[in-house]
Simulated assay, not measured.
Amino acid sequence: MALSDAPTNELSELHALVEGALRAAQAHPTAETTRKERHKARSRHFVLALADALREHEGGDVDALSRYHDNVRPRLGTGELLHDITISRSLQLGEHWYITEVLWQVESELSLDRTDAVQDFNKLVLGSAHHKLFVASMVPEPDSLLRTLEPAAARCTGRVFMALIPHPDHWDGDTAGGVRTWQFRR
């Protein structure tokens, strides 16, 4: 498995989606007083924005499932599946709705703890999505984190991407140019 940040159409589009979601999340003021509450609120806004961006990117006939989206709950019985974000298509047969295709599975772990990152990245191995994305906070040595995640990435089906964004503690400042993206390639 090789890791690449060489620009391709797909990687460039994904990079733009992640940057846009970060800007949208930063635009939400947070009234939380503690660092932990502020971090959680900022992470929630980022997941919402990224789910919406991926849904819009894939077209109008897809669902965005996340713990923060309730629009599919009446049909599918849940707002969130295993992943932080699942972008899927579904079909009604009789009275039941079935997921027929999973386009994106996204895990976001903004903790700086490498063990937390591995545990969340492992969830991507379980899925059948065409595209998988792991979003983490920028760390001092990104190459080391990428090498740590590579064994799990090698076990994933579909196209596997990684994005690093500034940690929520740094969202009050200018984060322009702070997003980095890669693709794990076979």
Rank of each mutant, 00 (worst) to 15 (best):
H57P: 06
F134R: 09
P142N: 10
K123W: 01
A41S: 15
D174H: 09
H83W: 03
H130A: 13
R155E: 11
I99G: 08
S43F: 02
A64V: 07
V72H: 09
D70C: 00
L48G: 08
G79S: 10
V62W: 10
K132V: 07
G173N: 07
D84N: 08
A152T: 12
E32Q: 15
V135R: 06
L14I: 08
A24N: 05
L164S: 11
S144I: 00
I165P: 03
P142Q: 10
S111A: 12
M1W: 10
E37V: 01
E107C: 03
D70F: 01
L22D: 04
T100W: 01
H39Y: 09
A6D: 14
G20H: 02
T181Q: 03
A24D: 10
S12Q: 11
G59T: 10
D116N: 07
F46G: 11
F184V: 05
A64R: 12
L91P: 02
T30M: 03
R114D: 12
W171S: 08
H83P: 05
A25S: 12
P29A: 02
L65H: 08
R73M: 08
E37G: 13
G178L: 02
T34V: 03
R73N: 09
D5E: 12
A51H: 14
H96L: 01
L17F: 01
P7M: 01
V179L: 00
L124F: 04
H167W: 02
S43Q: 12
L145A: 09
V160K: 13
A176D: 13
T115W: 04
R23A: 01
G59P: 08
L82A: 09
R147G: 04
D5R: 15
T33N: 03
S128T: 11
M1Y: 11
V102G: 06
H39K: 15
R89L: 04
C156G: 14
E109F: 00
R159G: 02
P142D: 07
G173C: 03
A129Q: 10
K36Y: 08
R155W: 05
E95W: 14
E37P: 09
D70Q: 06
R67W: 02
S66I: 04
N9L: 06
W104R: 14
Y98Q: 14
S128G: 04
V47R: 13
G77Y: 12
A49E: 12
R23H: 00
L146D: 04
D174R: 13
H131K: 15
E56V: 14
D63L: 14
M138D: 14
H39A: 08
R147M: 06
T34S: 15
V102N: 13
W97L: 05
V179G: 00
L65D: 07
L112P: 02
P166V: 00
S43C: 07
G127C: 03
M162N: 09
H15P: 05
H131M: 06
F121R: 06
K123M: 04
S43R: 10
A2S: 11
V18Q: 07
A27V: 04
E13G: 01
L17S: 03
L91Y: 07
T30R: 05
K36V: 11
A154V: 13
Q26G: 06
R44W: 01
